[in-house]
């Protein structure tokens, strides 16, 4: 029995190891290939260490332009999705009318819709309705239709734990609805707001399917990468991948550190309070 159990645990460990190797090995391979002097992205044969491909990527103007467009689209999506998602969340969590279930299903549906269908229908609709052909603005609209849902879900999760009497108390003390929103509701929503901004930006930045159909001749980073991958791949694309991964990790790390720091500060504050209570 003991033996069986140990064997079982060993198998579990080994499997976990394999699983994570499966997750990471391709990425490491891709990163490592960025440093090979070879003209195609590979590790074998190894032709010596170089940073040449980073320089090549750095000097690619199209890359910078795509990065710029990605930022532009990302920021626009953040603004639009937060605006729409917050309205949806307020509607869903405060208005207890009939038809709520149907409305919820409608608002959640976009995240279950294949991204290319959203992209296609956005392109068709704007072409038909306003003779607008694809450009970055359409990508913003297409992406926002489902990113707003993510934002809404984040806000709803936070609003669910909101004590609504706080708003009533503020109203009762003479605040106008607008003042209530800025002084009571929004401060409470701040953490959710940060998460929603981060998520919306990342989602937009990564999006390929929806964007491909609605962006027309403009180019975001994923569109640029896809274009590079279609014709004549060089390790420069590995260098771009490497830089993106580094940037992502850095952002994630600083986000996590900021969170830890906040938590530690609030914990030390509560300890201080405990101390005061004990000494008084």
């Amino acid at each position: 029995m003991m033996l069986m159990e140990r064997l079982g645990r060993f198998c579990a460990r080994a499997y976990l190891g394999l699983f994570f190797a499966y997750l990471f090995a391709p990425l490491f391979y891709m990163i490592a290939a960025a440093f090979n002097r070879s003209s195609v992205p590979t590790l074998s044969p190894w032709r010596g260490f170089t940073l040449h491909w980073f320089a090549v990527a750095w000097q690619d103007d199209r890359l910078w332009q795509a990065l710029g467009t990605s930022f532009l689209v990302g920021c626009a999506v953040v603004v639009l999705s937060i605006t729409l998602g917050l309205a949806g969340a307020l509607l869903m969590s405060r208005l207890k009318a009939r038809g709520r279930g149907l409305l919820y299903a409608l608002l959640v549906a976009p995240v279950l819709m294949p991204g290319i269908v959203i992209g296609l229908s956005t392109a068709i609709f704007w072409d038909r309705a306003a003779q607008v052909s694809g450009f970055w603005g359409l990508a913003v609209l297409g992406q926002s239709s489902f990113i707003s849902t993510y934002c809404m879900l984040i806000f709803m999760a936070r609003l669910q734990r909101f004590d609504e009497t706080l708003e009533e108390a503020a109203l009762d003390l003479g605040a106008s609805p607008r003042q209530v929103f800025w002084t009571v509701t929004l401060p409470y929503l701040r953490p959710a707001l940060f998460s929603a901004v981060a998520l919306a930006f990342i989602q937009s930045f990564e999006n390929y399917n929806t964007t491909l159909f609605s962006i027309g001749i403009d180019e975001t980073l994923p569109i640029y990468i896809a274009g590079k991958l279609r014709v004549g791949v060089t390790p420069a694309i590995n260098a771009v991948a490497c830089a993106m991964i580094a940037a992502t990790l850095l952002a994630g790390l600083s986000f996590e550190l900021a969170r830890l720091y906040r938590r530690k500060r609030s914990r030390s504050r509560s300890r201080r309070i405990g101390h005061q209570a004990a000494s008084s």
Binding site: L16, F20, L23, F24, P26, L27, Y29, M30, A33, P41, T42, I202, E206, Y208, L221, P222, I225, A226, L229, I237, A241, M244, I245, T248, L249, G252
Partner: peptide, 23 residues
């Protein structure tokens, strides 16, 4: 482990597919 699990998924889908293309 949970953090390690999420990291690969922060990498763009295209690049993940590209990594496998290399292999």
């Amino acid at each position: 482990l949970a953090i390690a699990l999420i990291i690969p998924f922060l990498v763009n889908e295209l690049l993940r597919a590209f990594a496998w293309q290399l292999l």
